[in-house]
Amino acid sequence: MTGAISSSYKRERLSLGQQHYADGQALERQGQMEAALDQYREALLFVPDQQDYRLSLGIALLKAGHLDEAQAHLQQLAQEDPTNGRINLALAQVALKRKKTSEAIESYQRAVYEYWPPEAVPERRRARWELVSLLHAAGRRNDEVAELLQLYSSSPNDPAERANIGFLLVKAGAMSEAAQIFRNIELNFPQNSFGHRGLGEVNFANGDYVAARHEFQHALRVSPNDHDAQAALTLTNAVIDLDPVLPNISYQERLRRSQRLLSRTVNEMNQCLLEKVPTPVAQHQLDSARDLLARPHASEEDYSLALQRTAAQVWQNRSSFCPASVPPNRAIDLAIGRISNE
């Protein structure tokens, strides 16, 4: 008799729990988060063993910004089922909201490497994408590259997503891996500009501007409306025009480029002077640069080098002199970078 009574009691609890849970889901869909939370909590009081209820409550609490309570529920779930990917993902999101980056990364890593039901593959991929962006923000390049390669290995046959992985690999400095991905895109999707644009980005990042220009041009031939490729080509051309250490150019051309680079650098500094009075050191440097540009040049052999050196010094001071509101010219920056590398 007790068995029958307790079974019927448990059934009643279950049914009441289900009712509250369904009400909670409906309210959550309507955006009434606080009311939904109350229903989820009620559901859990009737069926405290139901993991789905607790997880829904935890995630809803996270969305509503009740981080302490969300963490308590999710931690309990993680304690009961530590290999559940969804639970670890929610815990990671709580840690992220609390700005506990390393804790969030750990939870994300547990989330992406632990169990997910077969129907939750897209959710797992989303979790991995979140992890990648967190790793990028935290400056953990090696971990980021590893996760991107994992994403690539399980990526769907979608050139956009694959290209996105490749571009992120370029940002993370994994050039050879990125180049391989873009070559594959180029091979498998020849009518798509992503492969060439990506290879252009790789070459650009490697400092091979000429090869980059070639790839960008190719990308634009495949897809003339590719605005990113167009912007990249413009920048590449600008760098090539300024680059005084470009191989296979004549002495006169090198000198002309060096003069142009210093002149552009001084102009950039002058723009900053509109907003800020220069320090004596900066003023002296600018005066020296102007003198150098005005000097007769054909007779001096190392004049070109002096121009480049001065341009580099002026540019170096720029960052401390110019306010953050005046962004540096990227082409000049890259050209100066080339001089420094040489």
Binding site: S6, Q75, Q79
Partner: peptide, 13 residues
Amino acid sequence: AFLGNAPLFRIPS
């Protein structure tokens, strides 16, 4: 046996 193994309090770690 009748009401399940649920503890009196469910305490997160």
